[in-house]
Nucleic acid binder design. Structure first.
Lengths: 258, 258
DNA sequence: GCCTCCGAACTGTGATCACAGATACGATAT
DNA sequence: ATATCGTATCTGTGATCACAGTTCGGAGGC
């Protein structure tokens, strides 16, 4: 829960060299606890769709894989449980929650409410540098859609969206949206995969491209209402392509983590 | 994270008595882990406004007060940190977050987005029994407003609101709203206290009563749009009465927990 | 008086262990 | 073949301890 500015290497010595009170300069070192590192690895695996609904994890199994004791894994899983990304059953099993149509609908309703608000705020608050980064990330998304690796497309879409929401400069809102994506985000893999097959939806990527472009232009125009509407449409259109009735969200099972 | 249906006493024996295979009947026993019980105690204390912004807690201090080891307290605090109710600083202090005007505005924006959606859903999903309970809780709220104990008014307001949101039958939405109330809810104590003083806002309680009544009637009429608007107005009007500029949200300091 | 240093105490974090509950499997009885 | 029981194993939970980082107070130097 500390800041996540990353770990930077010491800068090279100044040209003046190590002289007197102007000695070598070192950048601050940001330290992450084991708990934070375990949490981040699990979060990334969930977001990348490496777990399937119903997959179970055990504290000792994950700890063994990471080469840590159980404690940091417990704390990371407690946080993920609070975020709804994993659930602890009455028989004490820890698993990725099963998905139902009702739950997915609820998640999309909440996402529309929060992410459209974030887009509205981003339209007035994004800096020029942030707008350029958002545009660049959208180009990445379009580029990855031409290749065969759906995992890369999923990640590029996530990066694009979160760049927009980060530009809203609303930390609590961003945190809540992150929780929602932990629950619903991996499900984007399913229509992505099907759009790469002959029997998949043909208008899926095209609709997504259009909404993203509308969003980017709305941000450029500082038009919050149009930005919010673009996000709403993106979410609603994507949600039409989710199949929940007994069909697993991922074509290949990742297996249990332990 | 197990269900919280509470612990029920065994029912009295049937009139048939203990005969053969129809022996005495026992209700299921719901067991709570220590972590869950510690979490619930801390959550209730926060919601009741017993902590002030900036109050710090220590794991060992809280554990000593509860007579437990540090483990369940750690897990409870980890959950509360994920929910934004406490924060862990870089120097490892655990404290109730400081409040700023920007953060309070953000919380209210999010609350409007989510709670109005919950009210809209409740208007179509609440059962007759739930509507009656909501009305009864609103009467409780009005009754407590006539007494001098603002803590009771705060609690009654919370019970009323959460009965409405629970009737939406949207578990993820309810969980997110709970997190928001953990952060912003205690702040309702401030205008409540000031409304009991001669220099306090005179229209504060009156506006709240009116919005609650509008909400209840809208739920009765199954009018989601009007229900959402009543919640929105309730939140927005209450937010006008919050003072953040250096003024602590609570007139008396609760002190540190450890 | 101010600054610096050192030691003690406090604190969160991670490791380890014990305990109790849940599950799976094999053996036995019907 | 099915049901029951006992045992071993696994698992989350809670307790305890050690470690490393942080803070605070006192002593000494300038």
């Amino acid at each position: 829960m500390t800041s996540e500015t990353g770990q930077t290497a010491p800068r090279p010595p100044d040209e003046a060299g190590c002289d007197g009170e102007n000695g070598p300069r070192f950048a601050p070192i940001t330290h992450f606890t084991l708990y934070e590192r375990v949490y981040e690895e699990l979060r990334k695996a969930i977001m990348a769709g490496r777990f399937a609904s119903g997959d179970s994890l055990t504290i000792r199994g994950v700890a063994q894989q990471f080469g840590t004791s159980a404690m940091p894994v417990r704390e990371a899983l407690r946080r993920l449980a609070t975020e709804g990304a994993v659930e602890v059953l009455a028989n004490r099993t820890i698993r990725i929650p099963l998905m139902t149509k009702e739950r997915l609908d609820e998640l999309h309703t909440i996402r529309v409410a929060l992410e459209s608000e974030a887009a509205r705020l981003a339209a007035s608050r994004a800096t020029e540098a942030e707008l350029q980064a958002i545009e660049s990330l959208n180009n990445d998304f379009i580029e990855t859609s031409r290749a065969s690796d759906v995992g890369k497309t999923l990640a590029a879409n996530q990066r694009f969206h979160f760049a927009v929401y980060a530009a809203a400069r609303a930390p609590t809102l961003l945190s809540l949206i992150g929780m929602l994506w932990l629950q619903a985000g991996p499900w984007l893999l399913q229509p992505l995969r099907r759009s790469r097959r002959q029997d998949g939806p043909r208008d899926y990527m095209g609709a997504s491209f259009a909404h993203h472009l509308t969003l980017v232009q709305a941000l450029r125009d500082r038009n919050g209402e149009r930005a919010a509407e673009a996000i709403r449409s993106d979410i609603v259109d994507a949600a039409k392509h989710f199949l929940v009735d007994g069909e697993a969200p991922f074509d290949e099972r990742s297996g249990s983590a332990a």
